[in-house]
Design a binder for these strands. Structure first.
Lengths: 124, 124
DNA sequence: CTAAACTTTGACATCAATGTCAATGTCAAG
DNA sequence: CTTGACATTGACATTGATGTCAAAGTTTAG
């Protein structure tokens, strides 16, 4: 599919898809005319890239994480001591983020629950 | 305590503490000399503000969330339909973030596990 | 009292993510 | 073939979070 379709299907502006590609978060084939060509899997991949960035990771770090995910699913991971240390550090940062977000999430959920907007049902 | 101490204890630059205050995420008393005066509870509050911002929330949204948390712990929540709808929307956004981060977190953890850096133990 | 360390405000700089626009090329429909 | 929708690249603008610096007052150690 071309970039416009991927954009629509993911809700990510085409501008950002190009940017993520520039930053190495997302790859694309090129058709003969020079247009970017994406596959189905890229919908997921783009969405995850977006998600990580929106979760506060820099594109630089998001790239590392996505690469780790890919490699982890594929082969026996190999990595330098430095990378491992960096990942260990980031892992605790991720855990902090998760703890923080979870707490807020629960608070918001409880709030909405207490505030009893039973009439608000369809609002997701 | 004064801003310097709060800064040291939270690891948040004083600059940011002032900024968070300006954005309404953090309050402070003022001593007679005009210096900001914080209490013990502000260590936690500042840390949470920081956490939310680092988790990708805008200061604007972080403020709302922190206020919700505070109110939720205190009183019977009251809120406008609009706020409730906004919160419901943000709740699903938070859930998305959590899902995304969790997935990455697990992948990184698995990677580190597989990569077997047993010698890396103290690295948190 | 003086010097060093801290605080305040305010201005200005930076960086990353994102928006917007322009000039140009491609493609599909009429 | 022409028009309109879409793509490409590249430049420029904006915004939010953050760093940095300066001028001035405060506090504390000596």
């Amino acid at each position: 599919m071309k970039i416009g379709e991927l954009s629509q299907r993911t809700g990510i502006p085409a501008r950002m898809l190009r940017y993520y590609e520039e930053q190495g978060l997302l790859a694309s084939e090129r058709s003969a005319n020079g247009y970017r060509a994406y596959g189905e899997a890229d919908v997921e991949r783009a969405t995850r890239a977006r998600g990580l960035v929106q979760a506060g990771l820099s594109t630089r770090l998001a790239k590392v994480v996505l690469d780790v995910e890919r490699q982890c699913a594929m082969e026996q991971p190999t990595c330098s001591r430095e990378l491992a240390e960096m990942l260990a550090t980031e892992l605790t940062a991720l855990d902090d983020r998760l703890a923080c977000l979870t707490k807020s999430r629960d608070a918001v959920a409880r709030y909405l629950d207490l505030t009893r907007n039973g009439d608000l049902v369809g609002a997701a």
